[in-house]
Amino acid sequence: MNESLFISIIIGITIASTPLIFAAIGELLVERSGVLNLGVEGMMIVGALLGFIVQFHTGSPYLAVLAALLGGMAISSIFAFLTQFLLTNQVATGLALTLFGLGLSAFAGRGYTEETIVLIKAIHIPFLSDIPVIGPLIFSLNPLVYLALVMVYLVWWFLYKTKQGLILRSIGDNHDAAHAIGHNVVRYRFMAILFGGAMAGLGGAFLSLVQVPIWGEDMTAGRGWIALGLVVFASWLPFRIILGAILFGGITVLQLHAQGFDIRISAQYLSMLPYLATIIILVSLRIRLKNKTNRTVPNCLGRIFHSTS
């Protein structure tokens, strides 16, 4: 294979998988605390819009990323409030969040559908970026790609190397017991949900600030849902998120390249690949586990916690 094609495929994969890494690593933490938030798609699209708007008006990528992060967090706080204080069904509330997020961003973004912005560029480190092959692949990626990897590491570090992370895992395992020994279940879960919102917001922003310089109300195209699938695929283990996202990114890039080569399959069938792949990945995971119960599944996932005392 031609070297530059190889590099462009690899870079394509990082670009396709990064939004999923962001959204999935956030949701992973949320689910580890025992909460299932199906609103990822809605939070992502809000992040995508806010990132776009702020970039459009200020031209500052820092502010744009920050806005996306805060926007995702803000909209996730609705979910957090409803599920943690008003004890609503998490599945229903998460769906409502997705529908609401899609509607809200379509409404608020109606003035921006014709606009374009300046994309966030990949970094260039003198010397290092110029090394053949390794330079472009390791030292010249988009800054947000590095950030996504750092976030995965941080989540892992938090979960396994800090007391708070241990408490969060214990809450996901048995919220009644965690409450009995005095940990504040609702506070931990609230925080986790906000973090999940922030990450989904970042994932959305990546779409509108790095992938394409435009805004469209359907630009998430199911990536929030795919991120939810990745969490399951990763068995709730942080580093496996990267693996899953790369697999998915690979399929997306493959499909794009296949469309470029004159392959005699209609584009629609190729576009189905990422969605079908998600299903196949989930099935293959179950086949690998041979129907054994998985110890890393948070026991309390989706269950409502209400302390009687």
Binding site: L166, I167, N174, A178, A180, R295
Partner: peptide, 18 residues
Amino acid sequence: FQHFSLFESLTVEENIIL
């Protein structure tokens, strides 16, 4: 506690630290 407030998926040590 009568119904132990332990966490099944965690180790003994993690349980104790919690």
